[in-house]
Amino acid sequence: MAKSLFQRVADEARPPAVLGRYGLYEDFEQVLLDDLVESGAWLDLELKRPFLALWVNEEDFDNPDWADPIIAIDQENVRKFAAMDPVVDLESLRGMRVYHIEPYVR
């Protein structure tokens, strides 16, 4: 079975991250992004671009609810992770189609 984009990101980041470390935590992708930023992880552009495109192409990305603390953290983390080496221009990801499957998180 093919690994999900999220599992590949977690495995191939340097240092690696742990996907689903909270078990059935509903927002595993947000925890993964936060872990990548906090650890200063490096990720190959082949994975970094589609991973960030998932956020950039969300319907509410340009008009987030900044009053929601989780959304505010996500918005900040997307920009921080994009600015980390290798740098990704978020605007270049607009309209990028990313096909992914949700991982089974224990």
Score class of each variant (00 low, 15 high):
residue 1 M to Q: 13
residue 1 M to D: 13
residue 2 A to H: 14
residue 2 A to N: 14
residue 4 S to D: 08
residue 4 S to E: 09
residue 7 Q to D: 08
residue 7 Q to A: 10
residue 8 R to E: 08
residue 8 R to P: 00
residue 8 R to K: 11
residue 9 V to K: 04
residue 10 A to W: 11
residue 12 E to Y: 11
residue 13 A to R: 04
residue 14 R to T: 13
residue 14 R to H: 06
residue 15 P to A: 02
residue 16 P to D: 13
residue 17 A to C: 13
residue 18 V to S: 08
residue 19 L to M: 03
residue 19 L to R: 01
residue 19 L to F: 10
residue 20 G to D: 08
residue 20 G to K: 11
residue 20 G to N: 09
residue 20 G to Q: 12
residue 20 G to F: 10
residue 21 R to K: 15
residue 22 Y to Q: 14
residue 22 Y to F: 15
residue 24 L to Y: 13
residue 26 E to M: 12
residue 26 E to A: 14
residue 26 E to I: 13
residue 27 D to C: 15
residue 27 D to W: 14
residue 27 D to L: 11
residue 29 E to A: 10
residue 30 Q to N: 12
residue 31 V to I: 07
residue 34 D to M: 01
residue 34 D to T: 05
residue 34 D to E: 14
residue 34 D to R: 05
residue 35 D to I: 03
residue 36 L to F: 09
residue 36 L to G: 03
residue 39 S to T: 09
residue 39 S to L: 04
residue 40 G to V: 01
residue 40 G to D: 01
residue 40 G to Q: 01
residue 41 A to C: 05
residue 41 A to G: 03
residue 43 L to W: 00
residue 43 L to M: 04
residue 44 D to N: 05
residue 44 D to Y: 04
residue 44 D to C: 06
residue 45 L to M: 06
residue 46 E to F: 11
residue 46 E to L: 14
residue 46 E to D: 14
residue 47 L to E: 01
residue 48 K to L: 08
residue 50 P to S: 06
residue 50 P to F: 09
residue 52 L to F: 09
residue 52 L to N: 06
residue 53 A to F: 04
residue 53 A to E: 02
residue 54 L to P: 00
residue 54 L to F: 01
residue 55 W to E: 00
residue 55 W to Q: 00
residue 56 V to Q: 02
residue 57 N to I: 01
residue 58 E to Y: 02
residue 59 E to P: 00
residue 59 E to F: 06
residue 59 E to W: 05
residue 59 E to K: 10
residue 59 E to D: 14
residue 60 D to A: 09
residue 61 F to N: 03
residue 61 F to Y: 15
residue 62 D to W: 01
residue 63 N to A: 14
residue 64 P to M: 03
residue 64 P to I: 03
residue 65 D to E: 05
residue 65 D to S: 01
residue 67 A to V: 07
residue 67 A to Q: 07
residue 67 A to K: 01
residue 68 D to R: 02
residue 68 D to L: 03
residue 68 D to C: 06
residue 71 I to T: 05
residue 71 I to R: 02
residue 72 A to L: 10
residue 72 A to H: 11
residue 72 A to W: 07
residue 73 I to F: 10
residue 74 D to W: 09
residue 75 Q to W: 14
residue 76 E to W: 05
residue 77 N to P: 00
residue 77 N to V: 01
residue 78 V to K: 00
residue 79 R to C: 07
residue 79 R to D: 05
residue 80 K to S: 06
residue 80 K to F: 07
residue 81 F to K: 00
residue 82 A to M: 11
residue 83 A to R: 12
residue 83 A to N: 03
residue 83 A to P: 03
residue 85 D to Y: 10
residue 86 P to K: 13
residue 87 V to M: 14
residue 88 V to N: 12
residue 88 V to S: 15
residue 89 D to T: 06
residue 89 D to N: 14
residue 90 L to D: 05
residue 91 E to S: 13
residue 91 E to A: 12
residue 91 E to N: 15
residue 93 L to Q: 04
residue 93 L to I: 07
residue 93 L to A: 03
residue 94 R to C: 06
residue 94 R to F: 08
residue 95 G to T: 05
residue 96 M to G: 05
residue 97 R to E: 13
residue 98 V to N: 02
residue 100 H to K: 08
residue 100 H to Q: 05
residue 100 H to C: 11
residue 101 I to T: 11
residue 101 I to F: 15
residue 102 E to W: 08
residue 102 E to I: 07
residue 102 E to P: 07
residue 102 E to S: 10
residue 103 P to S: 04
residue 104 Y to W: 15
residue 104 Y to G: 12
residue 106 R to L: 15
